[in-house]
Design a protein around this nucleic acid. Structure first.
Lengths: 228, 228
DNA sequence: CAGCATACTAAACACGCGTTCAGCCACCGT
DNA sequence: ACGGTGGCTGAACGCGTGTTTAGTATGCTG
């Protein structure tokens, strides 16, 4: 699910003039998101961000207080953007992947890449975002079950969480996906069929024969019971 | 598959005296792996590694030449260890997850955590390791198909690659898995049923009803054709 | 025993980091 | 016209970084 259920190509998104006529504060924030996405937070210096935004290093501190606070501001900004786009997508209708929200901002800072990077350095804001994604997935999949599109699960929340982890995990490893499959997970899904087609195969019908699946399931269930 | 097919608990692994009577060079290497795994390469200083190994910073450079070279040495050491354990596991019999190799070294440096960290900073040695994992998965799954345990795939290599990406991706996001499911993906799989049970459900039989799966598959196939 | 390579350290080096400070310039209310 | 406020900069500060250098102890080789 998730990206898998996305059938439509990426639309233009809001105009977002992009005439570089943003306030300096916004320019710094966008530049920081881009730099952090490319080199990671630890691998980016305040001076690098300042240069990318064509301002002095001092101005970065003037506006955000410290590098750490800048990082938090980026987290919050990205989170807000995601939530905004998510509800917009919801209103538009179900069936679109939640990442579509992030992809629409083609002209702005690379939100998906930023997320892929920061997912691994323990920011509480990003963690909250992930938690929300899982809750959304739970609700969304429940609808799918009621509509007869998805099979019911023994552990709906667990299933949604694992699906989210796998989808986000693949995103984090997009460099490897690119090398292994030639698919750019940060770009248009329609151009990454080398990833989504096998993914759909697994998510759709699984890869085990029913007997094997049944047997393994039984074994795991016993293990779980032994523990409690 | 992978971790999913692992049914046995983690065995002791080689004795690995661990009397701290290692050569200084080895102590530094192990300390570096631990530090890099915990704070990332960029977040770890040569002085930190030196302190963890109870030596002077200069000795680290003396033995490895530079921090970057130390990092490469760690990559190569971990890769060698993985390959070694992998072939040992192969000899022992199939059906065990390849990560078991990494988990056996409980007393040594945290290999799995190191991999989970370094998977995202583009080391060629780690990339080569991933490539090998995919090739192993391809071969392994082919055996499964022949044995009638796994369904055949439209794209065996793609399927193996995606499974590897998902498994490794979840590993990289183990912090989120811990928070969402209370499951420690770096530890004993038998204690992480909250992750492996839903995972098995998805991998085993998928989550879509056959009609929906069929329909989506058809749509994706058309998309792919339009591109070529 | 002399000679020498090797393991190792303390101190220092240059450099880049995040951050601070003093001051400039433009705008705005009065 | 004036005072002040806020956006903004250049230069500097202190610190931690990776690395170098000089020097000491140790243990092997002739």
């Amino acid at each position: 699910m998730f990206s898998m259920l996305n059938m439509g190509s990426v639309e233009a998104g809001p105009p977002r003039a992009e005439g570089e006529d943003l306030t300096a504060r916004a320019r710094i924030r966008d530049a920081a998101i881009t730099c952090f996405a490319e080199a990671g937070v630890a691998g980016t210096s305040v001076r690098t961000v300042a240069a990318a935004a064509s301002v002095s290093p001092a101005l970065v501190i003037h506006h955000f207080g410290s590098k750490d606070a800048l990082r938090v501001a980026c987290d919050q900004y990205v989170a807000a953007l995601v939530r905004e786009q998510k509800s917009a997508a919801m209103a538009q209708g179900p069936g679109l992947d939640p990442f579509a929200a992030l992809r629409t901002y083609r002209d702005g800072p690379p939100l998906l890449a930023y997320l892929a990077r920061t997912l691994t350095d323990g920011s509480p804001h990003v963690a909250a975002l992930v938690d929300e994604m899982v809750e959304d997935a739970v609700a969304y999949m429940e609808q799918g079950v009621e509509a007869g599109m998805l099979k019911p699960s023994e552990d709906p929340r667990g299933r949604a969480a694992v699906m989210t982890l796998w989808s986000l995990g693949a995103l984090v490893l997009h460099e490897h996906a690119q090398r292994l499959l030639g698919a750019d997970l940060l770009g248009d899904p329609l151009l990454a069929t080398a990833y989504y087609l096998p993914g759909l195969e697994i998510m759709g019908a699984g890869l085990m024969t029913p007997e094997v699946h049944e047997r393994m399931h039984e074994q795991f269930r016993q293990i779980k019971e032994q523990q409690s």
